[in-house]
Design a protein around this nucleic acid. Sequence first.
DNA 1: GCCTACGATGGGAACGTTCCCATTCAATAC
DNA 2: GTATTGAATGGGAACGTTCCCATCGTAGGC
Lengths: 351, 351
Amino acid sequence: MPATSRSATILEVARDAGVSKTSVSRYYSGERERLSTGMQQRIAHAAERLGYQPNPMARGLKGGPSGLVGMLVADIRNPFSVAVMHGVEQACRRQGLSLMVCNTDNDPTLERQNLALLTSYRIEGLIVNAAGRHGEALAELAGNGLPLVLLDRSLEGIDADEVGLDNDRAIDMALDHLIERGYRRVLFVTELPARASSRQARMARFESSSMSRQLEGEVLSLELNDTAGLDRGLSAFLDAATQQPTAILCGNGQVTLAVIRALQARRVPLGEIGLMGIDELDWCQLVTPGITTLAQPTDAIGQAAVDRLRARQAERTTPEPRHERFTPTLIIRDSTRRPGIDAPHCDETRP
Amino acid sequence: MPATSRSATILEVARDAGVSKTSVSRYYSGERERLSTGMQQRIAHAAERLGYQPNPMARGLKGGPSGLVGMLVADIRNPFSVAVMHGVEQACRRQGLSLMVCNTDNDPTLERQNLALLTSYRIEGLIVNAAGRHGEALAELAGNGLPLVLLDRSLEGIDADEVGLDNDRAIDMALDHLIERGYRRVLFVTELPARASSRQARMARFESSSMSRQLEGEVLSLELNDTAGLDRGLSAFLDAATQQPTAILCGNGQVTLAVIRALQARRVPLGEIGLMGIDELDWCQLVTPGITTLAQPTDAIGQAAVDRLRARQAERTTPEPRHERFTPTLIIRDSTRRPGIDAPHCDETRP
DNA sequence: GCCTACGATGGGAACGTTCCCATTCAATAC
DNA sequence: GTATTGAATGGGAACGTTCCCATCGTAGGC
């Protein structure tokens, strides 16, 4: 319990153990086997006694491995991002890596800035969930050999690894469920797809799959905070004179939230109009009558991102980028109870 | 647009500008005024041309200011923590500071580890929201002069600044609202208070204030995942033979979630039994009939934390610690509609 | 017109590592 | 017995900064 304000240096440990600093350095740089057991013990003792801890700054200066992984998150208040981040974090911990997270608040300037911050700390890999319409900076980094993993979105001009939801599969699962429940008319609500490839992918698949399944499919895409536009879009869709059982499919969790708000404002009872969302959130179970969702395996996605990073790191060569796509889990609740036919369905978490 | 893989050094800039590295260093260390305008321009040009960016590693090695603030978060998946973190982040940005966040997942070991990580990066201040039953490590840091701010909880034996909710005020506001709405019997549900001082404070105030207001108050404290215990506790309270209008007050957002789950499982209609929560969450508006909450000013709290840090940093002396307490905002919804009297209340966000 | 002082600049030694290159010593090969 | 190896260790030069301490003018006080 040394109450020293400044931590001990490698030199002090060396002196205390009666060995050279090189040996201590080796001890802490994963070259322990090269040292005789006697020396190892002496170093361990001295380090313990002095409360030594390698200084990552000095380490990073010289260019050694930093043990740092960077992560760029577009919106820290998005529960999905946080969930994945949690997965990434756990995976890093298991690998003995430290994670440095930066929130870009969907601001390209901030993104650029944070990118600079991360790289200046000599991160060994970067996991990116940010918007980044201009991937040039990222492309340059990747070109320089920094392992890069794109989370939930791809960026044109970048041949990096990607990890995310199997969007095609997800949309198909959603449509199949809706069809099975008897809905024949579906509105897909999404945030502006220009900003993120995953939105684009989901939208495109919705259009093609709803057609091939002979569903009456429509798409509504808008800014998240454009409540007026959302109201108008929903009105147009819901007020149409038709006998077809009708449902709404939300492109992600934030959209689900916005849509439910809008529906409640219009006093539309859920279940009669079917509702289904991509992304499972705390409250989906609570909102009457329970929202059917496709849950993303966020922990697995985070884990996979870190795995990809390590793989890239290991192989000095840069092979073709790999895309890892995860299948969501369908969580059925009563917001997709077949209109006028099914009995209310029991929440699956409380059988 | 220099496509160099490694960024330029201060020496290269100096050479390019025809000045000494000391001058360049000064230029970037906020001593710009000491340089002649001609030199400033030459340095600016050279730096621009070479894409120079100071290396924080080298900077940190030598002991200069790092511009880094550390934050320890107990649970990144807690929306309240994230909201505050977002406030902290914004405040840091405004001050030109970078934020390094570590999630401790409520694990003391991890907390210790992350603390070591942060300090090894020479952070200039630390904002702590973690559980940290053993504050020794923190106490030592604070003793060594590291500016420290405790968020939403205080730690015994530490005289650090504190920022958080005015718990007494919050509880009183809640009770007053419940009384005004005609409830006479209130159950306060909280997570185990041993872990966090804010829980303790809220519970204590609930006990004293409900007594002084002649409410029939009861307390139920348990682990968040102890659904069986929660069920039992709620049963005992709700099944009691009494005519008194009855309500439940939840100690924080997580508790609100758990309680609503339990109530829905028991098919207890909200509003008849009053329900009120501390912490405002996305979905509180959506769950029928809308949950009355006390919203914490999370951005202001984050901002205040950073302000405290800067203040500590500025004054070399260490004065008595300051506690900053924020007043919550009451958001009235129909979960506290007076039983059997009031007409349904309109959600305040959609008048 | 000289000494002082101050403003502008530069040289070099740290900071705590890693890593290249010795050096030592013993074991094996000839 | 000498040469050849290789394993175990140490010395010292980087890495890119900051900061102390020169150095150099030049303006002001006498």
